[in-house]
Each structure stands twice: as structure tokens, then as C-alpha cells.
Design a protein around this nucleic acid. Sequence first.
DNA 1: GCGACAG
DNA 2: ATCTTGTCGC
Length: 240
Amino acid sequence: MKIDIPKTWPVDATEAIAVQNRLRTRVITTDQFKSITTVAGVDAGFEQNGTVIRAAAVVLQLPELTLLEQAIAHRPTTFPYVPSLLSFREMPTVLDALAQLTLEPDLIICDGAGIAHPRRLGIASHLGVRIDKPTIGVAKSRLLGTYDELPPEKGAWMPLMDRGERIGAVLRSRKDTKPLYVSAGHRISLETAVDYVMQCTPMYRLPETTRLADRLASNRGPMPPVGTSAISKAQQMRLF
DNA sequence: GCGACAG
DNA sequence: ATCTTGTCGC
């Protein structure tokens, strides 16, 4: 897909925070899209003792979760990991991977926060504004926010709050397992975001988009062949 | 000042 | 993120 990739990126925390404060005003948290048929998952891993970032992008077809396409990109690691500045470390390489895709996904699910972020611009929101596409943030742990006790049943969710604002959802994607932290990235509402995350999560704690991108980014385990469903036939039957 | 802190 | 030993459940 066609993407404008910036030539230069912030070099330190001061510059990065300035960029976040400039872009945060452009985030849209209402549903602004037509039909969503294909969903991409993106993630980053590391090689060479952490000196090289390896980003992966996968595209799945809904509702079957068929793997349609995948791509990998590499870059030297430049920005350090700083909580709340994750996007400046991973996004350049993620954009490279997305640029390699032939297909144009209708929605992108990111590994990390959307607006559930101190300045309301986690990696999912930053990416969404940057390429002007619907995005969702799905984090495996909490960056910030408070929430009440969550029922153990699959599908249960509670608002994630910060400074009196609802910044996301704590979602039980699977019975009796640790919840996911879902937040709107861009051009999508929280309710719709939770809905699509569940559509991508038929079996495990993490959405198939995240699981496949993660596996590709970390070079760990086999990928399903392109053109086949990411889930077992037994699970497919439970869908219809 | 102290603790918390996506990946 | 990455590394690593042991344990639990289907």
C-alpha cells in the first residue's frame, strides 16, 4: 500500500513529545469507515541483540480469518524504549512493512495503546493519524488507567478510566485469563473496536492478527500458508 | 520525592 | 522486547 514515510524522526524525548502534542488533536474516535472486510495486524521484534528492529504486517480476511498477505521489514534500532514513546521506536519499521503490502487493509490492529496513553497518542493512534486509516490498540498490559473488577466470562469488558475520561476497555478475550487493554486508535469508536477485537479472537487470549504478526516479527513458529484460515476447522464450524 | 511504566 | 525453568490443563 502507498504510504508517506517521514525522512526524519524525533531524536529525543523532548522532540517526540512535541510531535505527540501536535498530532493528538487529529485523532478521531468515532466510526469513520465504510465496510471492513480485511484486517491487518502489525508488530515488532528484535534481532542482533536488539540493535535491529524487525517489523511484521499480516492481512486477514473477515470473518474467516484467512491469511491473505504478509510482509517483513528491518531497520537499525535508534530510539530507546521509553514508556509512552513506544511509537518512535517501532513505527518507522512498521510503516516499511505496511508499505510492502499489495492489499490495502480496511483496519489495522496494533500491539500497544491507542488513546489509552498519557497524551492520548499511543502507537495505534499515531499510526492511524499518520496514514489516515482506522486503527485499534490492543495491549497485553496496562500503560495507565484504573478499572473495576472484571467478570471472568469471555466477552466481558469494563471501561478503563484516566482523569475522569474513558480511555479504553479492559476486555476478557478468553474465560479465566488475563484481560486485554483495548483502546480506539483512529477513526473508530471504543464499542466498535471491542467488537472487531472479539471477531479476531475466536480461540486464544490474543487476536489472530496480533498472534500472526507477533510470530512473523519474532521468527518463532510456522505461519499458516497464505490463503488458508488461521484457525482450525473445528473452530471455523463454531463460527457458522 | 516516590512509585508506575504499552513493547 | 528477550531469556529461561518449571508447572498446569486439555
